[in-house]
Design a protein around this nucleic acid. Structure first.
Lengths: 112, 112
DNA sequence: ATTTATACCTAAATTACTTATGCATAAGAA
DNA sequence: TTCTTATGCATAAGTAATTTAGGTATAAAT
């Protein structure tokens, strides 16, 4: 499962959830964190990530803070108040979706 | 959660899995079955379903059989041999994806 | 008689990606 | 010392899976 595709629609929620947990992260860090947490299963491409971050910022869900570390640029993102509230909604939606999928593909899972 | 969106990429796998379980189904029946199994959570739109069925058929994963019931047309779909094999792969992929998502959004889930 | 349910279909628009490319610095290997 | 890999950002073109919005037709229910 070298480069498993990311199911469309879940990227934004993943970003929000990670920022909710970690407080603040920069783009590259997010890609590495996802790779690590999923044991290489999910690979976030930069072509998807950076536009997504910009859009979440434009929507007022994220704030940016630029930093320079080792003479290299980093853009730290963190949730705004609205972002924190929205994270709750999107997580609930994604969890509902996951439960629905489990109902469909493996009814036994959902009983316990 | 009136009309929860379907995360893109999962529709084909849902179709294949249902056909694997039920043997044969027609389009409208699939939409109703998904609605029932997910308690209305997931709504498959016809604009997504029919093109998906046609594509799976064109790929050689489904066979079609036309029937007339109560003077109304029904197109029953069932898995071909290749379709049955492919269902195994796609289900495994989707299950991997779901596990990855659980790692990301709720690490505790995956331990159990 | 009108609406709702059943049953199929397609086309345009939208959306979220992938793929490809670019720039720049730091670190490690040859 | 030069080349590659890792770190870090970015955008643009192309693609694919949807949504939305129509369309046709029969049966059942109000």
């Amino acid at each position: 499962m070298a480069n498993a595709k990311l199911y469309k629609g879940s990227l934004n929620t993943i970003i929000l959830k990670l920022l909710d947990e970690e407080g603040k992260m920069y783009g590259y860090e997010i890609t590495q964190k996802v790779k690590q947490l999923t044991k290489g299963e999910l690979q976030i491409t930069e072509g998807a990530l950076y536009p997504a971050l910009h859009k979440l910022e434009a929507e007022g869900l994220l704030d940016v803070e630029v930093a320079k570390v080792d003479n290299r640029l980093r853009k730290y993102y963190k949730l705004t108040d609205r972002g924190t509230k929205e994270t709750v909604n999107r997580l609930a939606e994604l969890e509902d979706f996951i439960r629905s999928m489990q109902q469909l593909i493996n009814p036994k899972w959902s009983i316990q």
